[in-house]
C-alpha cells in the first residue's frame, strides 16, 4: 500500500515513500524472536535498531528475515550522528543503505542528536545547540542521507537534560525548519517531548503545537525514570526501561486527536519484560488508535 506523503519534499527526498500501517508496533528484541514466529502476535509492525543488524550474518539476520516476511518493519538508526560537527561517516551510511536495500523497511528514522566525535562512538544521543550553524549542518547531513538512501528520513525529537546558552531558536522551531528545508518527516517521540518539557520547564502543549505535525510519520512511546537536578527539581531520564507514564498516554491521546491515527511504537530497551507485557502495552495504544478512526490522513489520501 502506498500513501502519498503529506510532506512536500523541497530538497532531495522522494515525495513517495512506503509507510507503516497506522497501528501499534513494538521493538523487536532477540529474546522474543522464536516466540514471535511461533505465535504471530497481532502487532502492526516491528522496529529494530539498524546498528544491531550491521553484522555479516548469523541468527539476527536469520530471524529478522523471517519476521520481515510477515510484518511491516521500521528501521531506527542510533549511530548516524546527524548533528555531529564533522562529516557523516560514509561507510556507515553505505552499510545502512545495504541494510535498507535488504529488508525494504516501511520507515527509516534517526535522531536529532550527535553520538560520535572524531572516530569515537559514544553510544548516547547527545544534545545540540539550536542555532543557524547547527541547522545548516543537520540539514546538509539529512540531505546527504535522503539522497543516498533515496527515501524520506523520519527525524526523532530528542529527550535532553541540558540546554545551550547560545541556542538562538527553540527546539520545535528548529525541527520545523529542518523539516521545511529537507522534506524529512518527523518521528514524534511523545515521551521525549514530555521528558524535555519537564526538564526544561517548557509548555508541552505549546511545544507540540509548534512542531510540524503534518510531517509526523511515526510516534514513539516509552517510559522514563525520575531523578532530581541540583536544585531538587524533577529531572526525567528517558531510559526506555519502564511502562509508558499516564501523563504520556494523555499526551499521546491529544496528539492522535490532532493528527489522526499514526503508526506508534512502544519502545523498551532496558529491563526487557516478557513479550506478553510488551504486547499488552501495544494493545493499549491500539485501542486508542482504534478510537481515533477514521483519520484525517486517510481521509486525505
Amino acid at each position: 500500500m502506498m500513501i502519498v506523503s503529506p510532506t512536500q519534499a523541497t530538497n532531495g527526498a522522494p515525495a513517495l515513500s512506503p509507510q507503516l500501517p497506522p497501528r501499534a508496533g513494538i521493538g523487536l528484541k532477540s529474546q522474543h524472536y522464536q516466540q514471535i514466529l511461533e505465535r504471530n502476535p497481532a502487532v502492526g509492525f516491528f522496529e529494530v535498531h539498524a546498528e544491531n543488524y550491521l553484522v555479516a550474518g548469523g541468527p539476527f539476520h536469520h530471524y529478522l528475515g523471517l519476521i520481515r516476511e510477515r510484518y511491516p518493519l521500521s528501521i531506527h538508526g542510533v549511530g548516524l550522528s546527524l548533528g555531529a560537527q564533522q562529516p557523516l561517516d560514509r561507510e556507515h551510511l553505505e552499510r545502512l543503505a545495504s541494510l535498507l536495500e535488504r529488508y525494504q523497511p516501511q520507515a527509516f528514522s534517526e535522531h536529532l542528536a550527535w553520538s560520535s566525535h572524531g572516530d569515537v562512538f559514544l553510544n548516547d544521543l547527545l544534545p545540540l545547540a539550536y542555532d543557524n550553524a547547527t541547522l545548516t549542518r543537520v540539514c546538509a547531513h539529512i540531505d546527504q542521507v535522503q539522497s543516498r538512501l533515496q527515501r524520506q528520513l523520519l527525524l526523532e525529537n530528542p529527550a535532553t537534560y541540558v540546554e545551550f546558552a547560545h541556542s538562538s531558536m527553540d527546539e520545535a522551531a528548529f525541527i520545523g525548519e529542518v523539516v521545511r528545508r529537507t522534506g524529512c518527516g518527523l518521528l514524534l517521540d511523545v515521551n521525549n517531548a514530555y521528558v524535555s518539557s519537564i526538564n526544561h520547564h517548557w509548555d508541552v502543549q505549546a511545544y507540540l503545537h509548534a512542531l510540524p505535525l503534518h510531517a509526523v510519520g511515526e510516534i514513539h512511546l516509552a517510559g522514563f525514570a525520575e531523578d532530581r537536578d541540583a536544585a531538587g527539581e524533577r529531572l526525567l531520564i528517558d531510559n526506555h526501561g519502564a511502562p509508558v507514564d499516564a501523563a504520556v498516554w494523555r499526551l499521546y491521546t491529544e496528539v492522535l486527536q490532532l493528527i489522526g491515527a499514526t503508526p506508534t511504537l512502544l519502545e523498551r530497551d532496558n529491563a526487557i519484560p516478557p513479550l506478553d507485557l510488551l504486547l499488552e502495552e501495544a494493545q493499549h495504544a491500539q485501542a486508542l488508535l482504534d478510537a481515533i478512526q477514521p483519520t484525517r490522513r486517510q481521509a486525505s489520501a
Binding site: 559514544l122 553510544n123 548516547d124 541540558v162 540546554e163 526544561h200 537536578d229 529531572l235
Partner: peptide, 29 residues
C-alpha cells in the same frame, strides 16, 4: 561552559546524566 538550565541549577548535575549514560551503556555492552 555554555550549558544552561531553566532554574539556574548547576548544569553539572544534569551533564552527569550524559556522562553516566555514555559510560554505563558501554559497560552494559
Amino acid at each position: 561552559a555554555d550549558l544552561k538550565t531553566w532554574n539556574g541549577s548547576d548544569p553539572a548535575a544534569r551533564f552527569a546524566v550524559y556522562r553516566n549514560n555514555v559510560l554505563s551503556s558501554l559497560i552494559d555492552a
